[in-house]
């Protein structure tokens, strides 16, 4: 029994930043790197299943990213996963969700897991598409924003809960293997101590490039591309102070100004 968890190293933006010269992203200097928040929950869910089964499952973490992404991978490994897979090729720099899913699909073929978890979305770009695309490529069932999961190794079906609009809750049954995108709050992710992360360096990580997976730069060419990224002018806010009469007067003034009177 094997659970594969796909994780991503995300960029966390500083509150003051500058754009890259090509205007298609923020300058790297203004990022801090971290394991995607949603992925903490996905990893935890896999570990909980493993622990509940008395360690009968193997949890494998996979990420697509350069050396830098090792930190995220080690963090996930430190929590208790068995081993990791990291895929990188410079041609993946501009990869979109579907391209990443293509790579992941090859990893899934290689690893042959019984279940694949991803975070519901990444906190930096938030496409929420990788899991879905991966399931599509594999021809597996997919469930998005899973908020509760009932599954143990050997089960043919997994029972999942999803929270819908209007406070509705949906209970679904999916046939395994499946790709599940895990929602925040499904569990309480454990903390990976720095010592644990350091010791996770001893855990095996397969470093693969495209050719190892039978892919090439051509096959992973992104079909979508960011054209421009910019911060639109901000609206203005003002806290109006003073007595009620003063406040009313100021309000009237603003309304007049905006109407262009």
């Amino acid at each position: 029994m094997k659970i594969l968890v796909a994780v991503k190293q995300v960029s966390v933006l500083d509150d003051e930043f500058e754009m890259r010269d090509d205007g298609r992203d923020v300058d790297e200097d203004f990022f801090e790197k971290d394991l995607n928040e949603f992925d903490h929950f996905a990893v935890e869910e896999a570990l909980l299943i493993k622990e509940a089964s008395g360690g009968e499952a193997e949890v494998v973490i996979v990420t697509v990213g350069d050396d830098d992404a090792d930190d995220a991978l080690r963090t996930a490994l430190a929590k208790g996963a068995e081993r990791g897979v990291r895929v990188w090729d410079d041609s993946l720099v501009d990869a979109d969700s579907v391209t990443i899913a293509k790579v992941l699909a090859k990893v899934v073929e290689r690893e042959d897991p019984d279940m694949v978890f991803t975070g519901a979305q990444s906190v930096d770009f938030g496409h929420a598409a990788t899991g879905m695309a991966l399931a599509g490529l594999l021809g597996w069932p997919h469930a998005a924003v899973v908020s509760k999961l009932d599954f143990k190794p050997g089960d043919e079906n997994a029972t999942i809960h999803r929270e819908l609009e209007g406070g509705l809750e949906e209970i679904m049954s999916v046939t395994c293997p499946a790709v599940l995108s895990i929602q925040l709050g499904i569990n309480q992710p454990r903390y990976a101590s720095l010592r644990g992360i350091r010791q996770a360096r001893q855990k095996p990580v397969d470093e693969l490039d495209l050719s190892d997976l039978g892919l090439s730069a051509e096959t992973v060419k992104a079909a979508s591309r960011v054209r421009r990224m910019y911060a639109p002018e901000r609206g203005q806010a003002e806290i109006i102070e003073g007595s009620v009469a003063e406040q009313a007067a100021r309000l009237a003034e603003i309304v007049k100004e905006l109407r262009g009177a």
Binding site: D14, D15, E16, R190, S193, I197
Partner: peptide, 30 residues
């Protein structure tokens, strides 16, 4: 700490310390 036996509100603090070297969840640049 190693066992993860602590108040979960401490986790963001510790993660901020790991990530940015401060306990207040602020970026290094700041």
């Amino acid at each position: 700490i190693e066992e993860g036996e602590f108040d979960p509100v401490l986790q963001p603090t510790l993660r901020s310390l790991q990530k940015s070297g401060n306990a207040l969840g602020e970026s290094r640049r700041k």
